[in-house]
Amino acid sequence: MRPVRHILVAVDFDQGERRAVDVAAVIAERFNATITLVHVMYPSPRVTPIWIQRREDAELRLQNLLAPLRVTAKCMVRFGAPAQEIVEAAQTLRADIVVVGTHGRHRAARAFLGSVSEEVMRTSPVPVLTVLGAPPDEAGS
């Protein structure tokens, strides 16, 4: 197994994001790796005060996720198509692995609605670890 030095964690601010971050933190502690949390926002046609505020809010939420971690970690907000931006961030940052949360939807619903996690898995040049956002008993299933 090749060494894991940098872990990219995709965060969409869904209820299951904490689990993906926690799993990445365990891996980072084990391998003395760095974590980067990345959140992708859809682009605005022009910069507006609302979009500036949304970006600042996202950065604050990412910082709150980083606060309890006992590993070297940073965060970034990107604009664009989520799966494409996650893969590009992994390449730019030379991540060794990408960790993404998944909502655990039924297979037919995923096929119909599409899935950022699945697209990242198909297009990522590095391994992708998917983490179920919440166990079935917590998700209300």
Score class of each variant (00 low, 15 high):
Cys75Ser: 15
Ala24Cys: 09
Asp57Leu: 13
Arg70Tyr: 00
Glu85Gln: 13
Ala24Ser: 06
Lys74Met: 10
Lys74Asn: 12
Ala134Val: 00
Ile27His: 05
Leu66Trp: 06
Val26Ala: 02
Ile97Lys: 04
Pro82Tyr: 11
Ala25Pro: 04
Phe13Trp: 12
Val11His: 10
Ala111Trp: 15
Val71Ile: 12
Ala95Trp: 07
His39Lys: 04
Gln53Met: 09
Ala20Arg: 07
Leu65Phe: 06
Ser44Gly: 11
Leu69Trp: 04
Ala73Ser: 13
Leu93Asp: 04
Glu85Tyr: 03
Leu113His: 12
Val128Gln: 10
Pro49Tyr: 14
Leu62Arg: 12
Arg30Lys: 05
Ala58Leu: 09
Asn32Gly: 12
Thr36Gly: 08
Asn32His: 13
Asp12Val: 10
Val126Asp: 06
Arg2Ser: 01
Ser141Pro: 00
Gln84Val: 14
Val77Asp: 09
Ala108His: 12
Gly114Tyr: 15
Ala81Val: 15
Leu60Arg: 14
Phe13Val: 09
Ala108Ser: 13
Thr130Met: 08
Ala33Thr: 11
Ser117Trp: 12
Ala33Arg: 10
Glu138His: 00
Phe79Gln: 12
Arg55Asn: 09
Ile7Arg: 05
Glu29Ser: 07
Leu69Glu: 02
Asp137Gly: 00
Asp57Gly: 07
Thr123Val: 12
Tyr42Met: 05
Leu132Thr: 01
Leu129Glu: 01
Pro136Gln: 00
Arg70Lys: 04
Arg94Asp: 07
Ile50Glu: 14
Ala33Pro: 11
Val71Phe: 05
Val87Leu: 02
Glu56His: 11
Glu29Lys: 06
Pro82Cys: 13
Ala24Trp: 06
Ala89Pro: 01
Asn32Lys: 14
Ala33Glu: 09
Arg70Pro: 00
Ala25Met: 04
Glu88Ser: 02
Gln15Ile: 11
Val47Cys: 11
Asp96Ala: 02
